[in-house]
């Protein structure tokens, strides 16, 4: 059921919201260090698939296996520890804590995992340099541009050295030039650190940064190359 060498696998997921089916037999798998684009029309179930894979939403039916462990057998506390230590997240909007400075935002996941403030902020700054936003450390999210904010969010997602980054339309609110740069930096950093990226997008130019793509239609993920 788990394809050889895959890090995260979902098999035959079903999820309904009331009478609305959001997932209807979706399967998916990703290898360490792989960048997979999840594409498909609006409302087809891309975000729902991502939320299930990340353990944020529990599917009605189907199995999700991360590094050999089935998510459904874990307690809520274990699942949230998994999200904190193994996963990173980048969304389209509003993911930074407005009261914290940018460097505090990037350091936050490390702090939540018990790192000392100084160590966490040092690591945070390394990633901010990598994302070309180290000069924004002292600013608050409201004081930086949308593109800069996304870079800070990418730095935060990478700072805790996750194994998987879940990105849902990470460039959706950016112009092409900024969006492309964010993607370039995200995929480069992920590949060099062997981080897998689940990249939800409806834009082909964004998907072109991936190693392969999976299309979701009517709640079913069609994985043309790696049928699981």
């Amino acid at each position: 059921m788990t394809p050889a060498g895959s890090l995260l696998t979902a098999h035959d997921l079903h999820k309904s919201y009331g009478s609305t089916p959001a997932l209807d037999g979706a399967s998916f798998s990703i290898h360490p260090g792989e960048v997979v684009a999840v594409m498909g029309p609006s409302g087809s179930g891309k975000s729902t698939l991502l939320h299930c894979l990340a353990g944020i939403v529990t599917p009605d039916r189907g199995t999700i296996t991360y590094a050999g462990r089935e998510l459904s057998t874990m307690s809520d506390a274990e699942r949230s520890a998994l999200r904190r230590t193994e996963f990173g997240f980048v969304f389209q909007f509003g993911q930074l804590v407005p009261e914290l400075t940018c460097v505090e935002n990037v350091a936050l996941p490390l702090r939540l995992s018990g790192a000392r403030r100084k160590d966490a902020e040092r690591t945070a700054l390394t990633w901010m340099e990598r994302l070309e936003v180290d000069d924004l450390g002292a600013k608050r999210p409201a004081e930086v541009s949308g593109g800069q904010g996304q870079r800070v969010a990418v730095a935060r997602a990478l700072a805790s050295s996750p194994k998987v980054i879940f990105a849902d339309e990470p460039t959706g609110a950016l112009d092409s030039l900024n969006g492309e740069r964010v993607l370039e930096l995200l995929t480069e950093a992920a590949r060099s650190a062997n981080v897998a990226v689940v990249l939800v997008t409806h834009e082909a130019r964004v998907a072109a940064y991936s190693d392969r793509d999976v299309t979701v239609r009517d709640g079913r993920a069609r994985d043309l190359e790696h049928a699981v």
Binding site: A204, R205, A207, A208, Y209, S210, D213, T215, L224
Partner: peptide, 20 residues
């Protein structure tokens, strides 16, 4: 249409890589 879509994306990946 699906086959064409994959072919288009394949070329887009090559061009994106070259661009990078």
């Amino acid at each position: 249409l699906d086959a064409q879509r994959s072919e288009h994306l394949r070329l887009m990946r090559i061009l994106t890589d070259r661009k990078r």
